[in-house]
């Protein structure tokens, strides 16, 4: 770890002002990922701007929209009555992530910004195009059991590690960002990026911006939703695959459906084709199986993660079945 300057601020305005002076500075929120990355020498910011005291912790209903501040802790969101009632999928996804201790300090914005857990990314002695563009991808031809099967590039097959983000993409969230000039909105599905030729970029946040809040429209999916996380141990493990599934069922017909996956791509992976297939159809195992098959159309394994080609559709079927079976 190198020496760095630590600054603390209490308003988003002053935070953005500090950031504008030094584009290499980083915001420090919960720090559950950033500090690890600094200890490993993966990230070496010269300045940390502590934004934990910026008042962006609100969780509230405004009209038909649920607002969640970027600095609300994972625990605060998961335990909030409004979220549990209206967006249980989000609460369940949050509770599937990390450990209770980490969730207590990890924030919504930080969760969106967390970087891949690919071992090659973390080890500065190994090649990684995400950490050091042009150095190669260690995972291709190496240990890629945890890696992507969708939207991969020749440069990077890392996955985004978040559970929360899988629920958020399924819930049609919008992200509100700000720079010194003002705010802009971006759909959650457009926040994270595929690796493509620029694996060093995880998302479309600009270097002068900060995440302010999330806006999530109210839906009728609360009753029949399920977040399934398949992992190597029952807690504190990243997903092999995860599925956010939510159904609105009326007269046995699916009137609305959301399906997204984690642990399979460089970004939270929305299964739009499967959703379109299921809309208007009966909520049956046969249809779930067809939707799962459809989801796998462009999937590709890299050897050690070939099992995901089977685990992913299986998990889609299971998640849909469990979502449907909720009383």
């Amino acid at each position: 770890m190198i020496n760095f300057q630590y600054l603390r601020t209490t308003t988003s305005k002053s935070a953005l002002a500090l950031l504008s002076k030094d584009k290499a500075a980083k915001f420090l929120a919960g720090g559950t990922n950033l500090i690890d990355l600094m200890k490993r020498g993966v990230t070496t910011p010269e300045k940390l701007i502590d934004i934990n005291h910026v008042p962006l912790k609100q969780i509230e209903l405004k009209g038909d929209t649920i607002i969640i501040g970027a600095l609300a802790s994972n625990t605060a969101v998961a335990e909030h009555a409004l979220i549990k009632e209206k967006l249980p999928l989000l609460a369940n996804a949050l509770n599937a992530g990390a450990s209770a201790q980490l969730r207590n300090v990890a924030t919504v914005g930080g969760n969106m910004m967390q970087r891949t857990r690919c071992g090659y990314f973390y080890d500065t002695e190994m090649p990684c195009n995400k950490r050091q563009p042009g150095s190669g991808c260690g995972a291709i031809g190496g240990f890629n059991r945890m890696h992507a099967i969708f939207g991969t590039s020749e440069k990077c097959i890392a996955v985004h590690p978040s559970d929360m983000c899988v629920a958020l993409i399924a819930l049609d969230a919008t992200v509100v960002l700000a720079n010194q000039k003002g705010e802009r909105k971006i759909l959650f599905k457009d926040f994270h990026r595929l690796a493509g030729d620029t694996p060093q970029l995880d998302n479309n946040l600009k270097t002068d911006e900060m995440i302010i809040r999330l806006e999530i429209p109210i839906n009728n999916l609360a009753k029949n939703s399920h977040y399934l996380k398949v992992r190597d141990r029952a807690s504190y493990a990243f997903a092999l695959v995860s599925v956010a599934a939510a159904l609105e069922i009326s007269d046995h017909k699916i009137t609305d459906v959301r399906l997204a996956m984690g642990g399979v791509a460089h970004k939270p992976w929305r299964l739009t084709a499967s959703e379109n297939f299921l809309k208007g159809k009966e909520a049956s195992t046969a249809n779930f199986e067809l939707a799962a098959k459809l989801a796998m159309t462009d999937a590709k394994g890299f050897g050690e993660n070939d099992f995901k080609l089977q685990m992913a559709p299986n998990s889609i079927i299971e998640a849909l079945t469990l979502a449907k079976s909720k009383a």
Binding site: D123, G141, F143, S235
Partner: peptide
Amino acid sequence: IDHRYGRYINNNFADYHVPVNAD
């Protein structure tokens, strides 16, 4: 271990999975 480099790849408590209470 990644045998191309001879280095451990999961040498931390997040990736080396000892059982947790839930297991």
